[in-house]
């Protein structure tokens, strides 16, 4: 394995560079996935049937908390990658763990939010609007859940093996994923919640 010392650790091997490009392309596919969900959401948003509309069920407080938690976690993982570039394993791990805890808190609030929706009569089966709302939010939530498992594994590996080209590469790619979830959330916040509450 050839290691290029002039590049950051995560870019230092050929396979590492391939992985990162591959992941960017995967994010391209993810963009299409969420774009399709958003397009379907805009198509179905006013088709509430006998169920409630967005403005009747959305609550500002949990949504703001979720936004705050996720945006902060995106910031802390950025700090984590910065620490990784400086070679400070401990600081990096701390920031990664904070990120995961924030992600877990986000998930908790989101589950509360879902329970609330079902409670007020906006379940998955109520109308086309609630179906696409919960599916779009749920897809994002599922991504966060998957990210929590994935991130935990990466933290464990960095603890066990230290910062190697392989673990650095994984950590960096995970940070790309996490930032992407944040970007999706910004769209959800703006076009589903804010637009729906207006």
């Amino acid at each position: 394995m050839q290691i290029d010392k002039t590049k950051p650790l995560e870019y230092s091997t050929e396979q590492g560079r391939l992985n990162i490009l591959g992941f960017w392309i995967f994010i391209g596919a993810e963009v299409m996935l969420f774009a399709t969900l958003f397009a379907s959401y805009f198509t179905l948003v006013d088709r509430t049937g006998s169920g409630p509309s967005g403005s009747e069920i959305f609550e500002l407080t949990p949504v703001l908390i979720e936004t705050l938690l996720l945006l902060t976690s995106s910031f802390t993982i950025g700090l984590g990658v910065h620490a990784m570039r400086l070679g400070r394993t401990k600081a990096m791990l701390t920031f990664f763990i904070i990120t995961l805890v924030l992600g877990l808190a986000f998930l908790g609030v989101e589950i509360y939010e879902f329970v609330h929706y079902v409670h007020v009569g906006a379940g998955l089966q109520t109308s086309a609007f609630t179906s696409i709302l919960l599916t779009t939010l749920g897809t994002h939530g599922l991504h966060v859940t998957f990210g929590l498992f994935w991130g935990t594994m990466i933290v464990m590996q960095v603890m066990k093996r230290g910062l190697t080209p392989a673990t650095a590469n994984k950590s960096f790619i995970f940070s790309l994923y996490w930032h992407f979830l944040d970007v999706v959330w910004i769209f959800i916040f703006s076009f589903i919640y804010l637009k729906g509450m207006m």
Partner: peptide, 10 residues
């Protein structure tokens, strides 16, 4: 669910 149904807004 009601994505493609003919009732409840699908």
């Amino acid at each position: 669910t009601n994505f493609f149904t003919t009732t409840d807004g699908g």
